[in-house]
Amino acid sequence: MTIKVSMKVNGKAASAEVEARTLLVTLIRENLRLTGTHVGCDTAQCGACTVLMNGKAIKSCSIVAMQAEGAEIMTIEGVARPDGSLHPMQAAFKENHGLQCGFCTPGMVMNALDFARSHPNPTEQEVRESLEGNLCRCTGYHNIVKSIMAGAKAMGGKI
């Protein structure tokens, strides 16, 4: 039995007929084929699936798609400028080598976007605390922290 779910994803209307048990991340990856949002665990620890729902960072593996009915979702695919140029937070990750294998990166960037809006000039300590819900196994976080501090400054409180 399926159920219709509709929402706005990266500014465009999106809908699908899914089973009620479909997770938001499954809808995004499988139905909408936006595979930049990743699944790295099954206990809501890694944060690779982080997207913005109505502007707030959430873990898309931890809610069913129906919970996002009518919501505005932003995934990593919706972050760069329409001309393809990188958003200041993305650019900061590139400039500061804030990514290696790239798998946790979309979740890191999405969480950072939301965080930086309320922290335009964060301390290292604040950034490290903001990453409690995101795991990275490659970078030792050193350059992720640098990236977010630089990206937040460049954003000036606005996504």
Binding site: I76, K94, E95, L99, G102
Partner: peptide, 21 residues
């Protein structure tokens, strides 16, 4: 030198095995 591979990873365009359908 900044990495050539970063653009695709930062924009969600990486292609990991589970992304292959």
């Amino acid at each position: 030198v900044q990495r050539k591979e970063d653009y695709r990873f930062l924009t969600g365009a990486g292609q990991y095995t589970d992304d292959v359908e």
